[in-house]
Design a protein around this nucleic acid. Sequence first.
DNA 1: TACAATTATCGTAATATTGCAATATTATAT
DNA 2: ATATAATATTGCAATATTACGATAATTGTA
Lengths: 107, 107
Amino acid sequence: MGASKVEIHTDAHILISEIAKVLSHPARVAILEYIAKQENCICGDIVDEIGLSQPTISQHLQVIRNAGLLKGSFEGKRLCYCLDVARFKEFQQVLNQFFNQTSAQCC
Amino acid sequence: MGASKVEIHTDAHILISEIAKVLSHPARVAILEYIAKQENCICGDIVDEIGLSQPTISQHLQVIRNAGLLKGSFEGKRLCYCLDVARFKEFQQVLNQFFNQTSAQCC
DNA sequence: TACAATTATCGTAATATTGCAATATTATAT
DNA sequence: ATATAATATTGCAATATTACGATAATTGTA
């Protein structure tokens, strides 16, 4: 099928999987790292940095944006992206809670 | 395409994405939680627990196994799975390092 | 050895993801 | 208003993932 049976899963499990999905492609990991690293959030050269076409990068950015991790504002002609650090740390916390709880419960 | 251009990405980014990929499906999150929760690792009823067919669960287990997160041993007729907690915590650490470094660098 | 129970693998269908060329949109400057 | 530069969207092809029925392999037991 290819379609996951979402209805049988708990909200908590779906949340974790959706957070993980954002990080499940190396280009998105690279993009996140890059937009965080840039001083003054001067971005737009992500395309040159990563080595994928502009539409592909834009598509990955949309995944990141839909997850609520992207803040953007215009600076001159160029759209300047920035990581939503608060949300990013939220993600980290959700994952850590899962990791901690799960490993604590194990034999 | 559907094939990610692995060759253009760094090992670090690929590692993170591969770890995330294991967690990127709610069934696998549920399975990981479940095999950790079970006392004495008496497993095999994951199928009943999750609500997917036996082949599908087996397939998800393979993804988890390939990631090095699964330890298995036979107990009577039934194969008894257990989480490799050390490896699991390794994964947590890799992700945390990424989260911490990335958010620290950000504006 | 043969049988029953459990798990893995194979084959296949449906859907999702990834990637890019072409095109549209958006914003600034002239 | 027009031109230019940057980004988003569309359309499409290739590959990956997800799911399950059928079947094979594995293990303990009679």
